[in-house]
Amino acid sequence: MKKYLAVIKTEWQRQMTYRINQFTFRIGNVFDILMQIIVWTAIFQSTSSVKGYNYREIMTYIIIGWLLTFLMTNFGFESIISRHVQKGELSNFLSKPIDYVNYLIFLSIGRSSFSLSVAFLMNMMLLLIFRKNFIFSADIFMWFILVTMVLAGYFVKLFLSILVGFISFWTVDNEGMFYSIKTLERFLGGVYFPLNILPAIFLKISLVLPFVYTFYFPAQLYLGKISVLQGLLGLGTEIAWLAVLYFAMRIVWKLGIRKFESVGI
């Protein structure tokens, strides 16, 4: 365990070295959030309700959704794994008494703990600015499901990233695949707009994929637009995805390591 804690500590120090990157990425996120707030504010100037959402509900959807998505985000794991595989750096891990997949998980915790603290602070500032249009909820059951969903969602996203990273065992690069999956994750997750304003087919497809449980579904739960029971069912689906992705990750790792040529040795 001590060696994995050292991984977290080292990563935290590395993140501190690249502070400008952290700052600019967060600015990018702020643009995303502000754009949604501005667009929806413009839309609500000529109507009081869109598909059952009033202005306060849509503002709450955006703020709570982004807060949750920040908490579940890991940063750039696909490229880290790709680099390890393509440049032969993976050999360093194979020769050490360390499980590579576990190393990645702890590395992610180290990365996230720094980045999330920055992102969390920025979201709290947004919450403070838009507090008049934010709906606060004190439903304890809802919070219990929500927190569990965030934990499960964090690992769902991490395992997906690791899986995409493992594609590097078979291809020269994986950035394109990473970009495609991130794009699908954002749109089928309901990051840019609530999925139920789109034609019904989008929501139906989304509900069987894991992305929806990282933004749209928990935000709907928070707003009380789905019941606690439906929330539990959603949580069950998310945990099922977590298990599927974990086993898929372990299997792909075993298959990939057979293919690994250890470039540079």
């Binding site: 291809t171 020269v172 950035e175 394109g176 970009y179 495609s180």
Partner: peptide
């Protein structure tokens, strides 16, 4: 030489 890679980008 990187058709899958760039195809994925295009899809995204």
């Amino acid at each position: 030489s990187n058709r899958i890679e760039y195809g994925s980008y295009f899809f995204g």
